[in-house]
Amino acid sequence: MPSVPCLSLSERQAVFLTVGFYMISALLMVSCNKWALNALRLPWTLLWCQMMIAVALLKFTDYLGVLKMPVIRKDVSKALIPLISINVLGLGVNTLCLVYVDTSFYQIARGLVLPFTVIFAYALLGQSSSKLVLGSCFIVFCGFYTGVTSEINVSQLGVFFGIISSITTSLHAIVIKKSLAAVSNSSIDLVYYNNALSFLAMTPLIFLSGESSSVLEYFNKDGFAAFHSFLFAALITGIFGFLVNLAGFMQISKTSPTTHMISGAVRGVLQTLLGYFAFNDVITTGRLTGIVLILGGGALYTYAKDQEMRANTKPTYIPMTHKDIDNDDEGHKEPEQA
């Protein structure tokens, strides 16, 4: 009988652990960032500290011999400029969006990731989409529109940052796939380059944003207590920032886009619940409807892509007996020359 291709147990476990690691890290990262930003309105400084801690942790794993970090090369750094640019911009707008909106509304503000992903896949990769995929994008857009227009006190600036965040997130996955070739397809090398170069690129932004003066004023006002609070917030968000960064690269490189989309949908549901229970967010009817439509559109997209993959996968026939082999040879004989 024909053999049925399937993942080995170890591969299934790797996918499960990777997706679980990503979702847990992302949820903890959002909650820690929201807590830190509620206490300290210093988004660029906190991001800079996160990058610094991530680089320090990566170097520490190299020192222990757990992971091997690459030596920064100029040619590789130049090839990764698009990735670093999108990463810095994406981290910035993600954090600024979280400053202005509730944790539960964060899912809606960044709800246009799927439509932008389909648009960029067509514009940059030439990948056309089926009517079902386009229909899922329309449902997601309706969810975004419903969620945004139903809120009375929603921050327009937060929504703007959410839209930019959707664009950068859509581009990020595409750029990561293309950037892996520059580091010989090593996810760990790409994580190190990404964090080290983003740390350097983010340094001048602290001064350009005026946060350097705010940090000094904050320390002068409250003294050691302020320094303790800042250090604790930076350390916690830095550790989870490192984990979610590593988890994101692992998931994108180890799983399919469908798996990535499913985990994102599940994370959206958990994130909404987190905002309700941890931060006392108000879940209005319009907000809930918007979230349901966004997640429903994502589920329809996942189904559509799964059907496309099944349609494009041809079953492989493997002969199991000598009779099958003989019949297969007879069926594939070359025609005799006249």
Rank of each mutant, 00 (worst) to 15 (best):
F120G: 00
V55S: 03
L42R: 04
V282R: 09
A14W: 02
G158M: 00
F279M: 10
G92Q: 11
V30M: 12
P204R: 12
G210S: 11
K34I: 08
V99F: 06
K333Y: 00
P70W: 05
R110A: 15
A338V: 07
L46F: 11
D328V: 07
N94Q: 11
A182M: 08
M23W: 00
V101C: 02
I86Q: 02
S155W: 03
G290P: 12
T45W: 05
N327F: 14
K333I: 02
L157S: 05
I252T: 07
H332Y: 13
D329I: 14
Q156E: 01
A304Y: 09
T302I: 13
L132R: 07
A181S: 13
F161D: 11
A247Q: 04
L64Y: 08
L9A: 11
A338Y: 07
C137L: 11
Y145Q: 02
L274D: 07
N87Q: 11
A234C: 03
A311E: 14
D102S: 14
A201S: 13
V93L: 15
D189I: 06
E334C: 03
F227R: 02
L89C: 14
T237K: 00
W48A: 14
A181K: 12
P204S: 13
F230H: 06
I294R: 02
L67P: 00
V159T: 09
P5C: 10
L80H: 01
I252G: 05
T258H: 05
S25T: 13
L157D: 06
G286F: 00
P319L: 00
A234D: 04
F141C: 10
I176R: 15
F161C: 07
V88F: 09
P335F: 04
